[in-house]
């Protein structure tokens, strides 16, 4: 297991390094921040001073190594716009996005798992067909449209839920969270539901497919032949087996949920990283864009790692192979 962990860590480091190059070049290739940041009527001297101050006059490779050296010390550059460390800016916004993505994941599990279970156990029943048809909608309706519809119905028409912002927050572990206040929770519901729509559908389909496959297995029939109660058969023998793919995919999906939150955050004016990155792209605030993308890369790497560990906790067969490795 230790050898395996070390190998994984080295692979991850390489991935991060490769990503820094790609990101740096990719972001460099788009647009010219000077055009946006400096007023068109500024004179040549003023322009050059600004360019030098931002370090944009040096050769590309030098800029990269400066960036890399700084990055290793946790400095991903200063925002052109806010003149603050880019990392700090993003980390400030991160809890809001994490909270949103976590809430969406919780929704996906608490709604998707039971619905998928029902649809898998009684695939021919009317309600199962309704569940599956709805899940297709969840896959295919665009997030922004559903977001707007949610606002139309629950905020504008019914006036039940607030439609913009995060609402009141409370501090926990030095960070502000919405879900800790009743009112904040009301602000969280709609954006989280909107963001989780795709994931709910995904969990429903995964669970249903898993259940349908698992109930046909000999070990499920054997469990029944032992005289176990139907609940024990479903919630221990079937569920424990389908949890493996469901947990894996949900955890892996967490990264894309954060990436997708860009849309939801824009619609609901949720003050998270997604909204910040959209604003930064508009003004070509390169350090913030690069820092955001680096953080996303890190997140994916950490997620993959966690999933591997979780997997071995859930599946004893994997555990044994790791011991051998």
């Amino acid at each position: 297991m230790t050898v395996y962990l070390i190998r994984r860590l080295m692979q991850s480091a390489l991935v991060v390094l490769a990503m820094t190059v790609i990101l740096f070049l990719g972001v460099y290739a788009i647009g010219d921040p000077i055009e946006i940041l400096i007023s068109p009527d500024a004179d040549q001297i003023e322009r050059e001073r600004a360019i030098a101050a931002l370090g944009l006059d040096r050769p590309l490779w030098e800029q990269y190594f400066t960036f890399l050296g700084n990055a290793l010390q946790g400095d991903l550059g200063r925002s052109f716009v806010f003149n603050e460390p880019a990392l700090k800016l993003i980390l400030q916004k991160m809890p809001a996005t994490l909270e949103l993505a976590l809430a969406a994941t919780v929704f996906a599990i608490i709604l998707g798992l039971p619905l998928g279970l029902i649809a898998g156990l009684k695939p021919d029943a009317i309600y199962s067909r309704v569940i599956m048809a709805t899940s297709i909608l969840g896959f295919s309706l665009p997030t922004f449209w559903v977001g707007l519809m949610l606002i139309m119905v629950f905020a504008v028409q019914l006036g039940w839920l607030p439609s913009t912002g995060r609402g009141p927050t409370a501090e926990f572990l030095g960070v502000q969270w919405s879900f800790l206040t009743t009112d904040g929770l009301r602000y969280l519901i709609m954006p989280a539901l909107n963001l989780s729509l795709f994931k709910i559908s995904l969990v429903i389909r995964l669970t249903r497919a898993g259940v349908r496959e698992t109930v046909l297995m000999d070990y499920v029939k054997f469990a029944r032949a032992k005289g176990l109660s139907p609940n024990r058969v479903i919630f221990v023998h079937v569920l424990k087996n389908i949890l493996i793919p469901v947990v894996t995919v949900t955890a892996l999906e967490f990264g894309s949920t954060i990436a997708f939150s860009v849309v939801t955050e824009s619609i609901f004016a949720w003050p998270g990283m997604g909204k910040l990155i959209i604003d930064s792209i508009y003004v070509l605030d390169r350090p913030v864009i690069v820092a955001y993308l680096m953080i996303i890369v890190f997140m994916f790497i950490i997620l993959n790692f966690t999933v591997d560990v979780l997997y071995s906790v859930l599946d004893p067969r994997v555990r044994l192979q790791d011991q051998k490795a």
Binding site: Y219, K240, I244
Partner: peptide, 12 residues
Amino acid sequence: FQDPMMTLNPVL
């Protein structure tokens, strides 16, 4: 059952 490889639940 017939197939001992399939009768026991692999995750329990």
